[in-house]
Write a protein that binds this DNA or RNA. Structure first.
Lengths: 221, 221
DNA sequence: GCCTGTATTTTGATTAGTCAAAATATAATT
DNA sequence: AATTATATTTTGACTAATCAAAATACAGGC
């Protein structure tokens, strides 16, 4: 059995691989796991010896097929638990990430599949992040743009929030930009770095472009 | 924060104190935690230094008020989680103990109180074991006898099962002796060491006396 | 009162995960 | 090409929890 530390290293590696091309630098794991560089080197070597990672000296790591399968299992637990905490226990949307971080290592597959069934086999979590199925496969979803690079003056649906920080999530929630919400981008100014959008209820919001890049929107709403 | 190992030592000490008078011998912890005696000595000393236990050399341990409060918190988590797994996720009654053993260390108080509310603040878990409230207080319940020492020929209600082993729980479930069931003791023979009882549906069951001592029955049903 | 058996404690070693700080390799800049 | 800056690795040390096995204390029987 993988310890929860090993599971965290696997999950961090997977998340980085999903966002970037090529090898995962050690510094990415240092950042994600909040440990000093030497610790990452030590752990990575041990995990490579176990066949969970490939370690290219002075370059970084890549998940092996075995490591990838385990990492997908952890991600599945994390996202299903988050969904459960929000939908069933009605917890605050911005506080469940921390809770899921602990529970993902304690929930057995048996309990997990009960939760999955109880929720009706959801394919995305409350942030809109996709949930892999028990075989590690993600449901294919339409290609999606963010509020920073989508078409203007068209009614769009928010499908995903690419930031887990409580601050940003609180902001998003307070302004009704949660997944499912319908928005229309009115104006986007590269010069000033801000963007203006409108909700269904007519409320207008001004967002910085970096923030806008964290909000994914799907096809027409 | 107490590690999950420390939580396990606290819980084991509390459970032993609830069943026996006086000091908790080291051997009780050796037995409950499945470690060698030297390990218990080491852990107990460390926990005594932290103010969680009193350690009487060569005698055993006692919970301090601080340790007791923590232990009650762990017991509350364990029993609420078990109740949740059975009632909400419809898990098998005999398999939840093991799951709760892992989850009790990962569930935060915030999540716990959501679960408690979701379940409607139950006072007993699926085995009939009492659940302490958030302040560590047990709801007072009527004094209860076991099937080994209760009155004969009277319809009684099963209220609690004093054994967490999957084997015994499976047996109890298969024969409809779960908490809530109604039974009547027909005959009890010290000589042969067996006892005969009848369920509402007329089914008759023969139990050994040690097994009967593990089934608590309440007043008339 | 001595001896024996059992419970407890001690001692020395091990594993997982971590840090601090020094050493080293690589990439970037001049 | 030489120097500088940055990323990574190494080394030595530490904590928590554990085991094996030797040492010790104690209670009860004789």
């Amino acid at each position: 059995m993988a310890t929860s530390t090993v599971e965290n290293y696997l999950k961090a590696t997977l998340l980085y691989e999903q966002k970037h091309e090529g090898i995962v630098p050690m510094s990415a794991l240092v950042e994600a796991l909040g440990v000093v560089p030497g610790t990452v080197t030590t752990m990575v070597k041990a995990m490579a010896a176990q066949g969970l990672l490939e370690h290219e000296a002075r370059q970084g790591v890549r998940l092996t097929p075995v490591g990838c399968a385990l990492a997908l299992g952890v991600l599945r637990k994390h996202r299903l638990v988050e969904t459960f905490l929000v939908q069933t226990l009605e917890m605050d949307w911005s506080e469940v990430h921390v809770e899921a971080e602990a529970l993902e290592h304690a929930v057995s597959n048996r309990v997990l599949e009960k939760i999955d069934a109880y929720l009706g086999h959801p394919t995305v979590d409350p942030h809109g992040d996709p949930i892999p199925n028990a075989e590690g496969v993600f449901a294919t979803s339409a290609t999606q743009a963010t509020m920073q690079d989508c078409t203007l003056k068209k009614s769009l649906r928010v499908t995903r929030i690419l930031d887990q920080s409580a601050d940003f999530l609180d902001y998003v929630q307070d302004h009704g930009l949660k997944p499912g919400a319908s928005v229309k981008i009115l104006k986007r100014e590269e010069a000033s770095g801000v963007l203006q959008c409108e909700l269904v209820d007519g409320e207008e919001i001004i967002l910085g472009l970096p923030a806008a890049a964290k909000i994914v929107v799907g096809g027409a709403a």
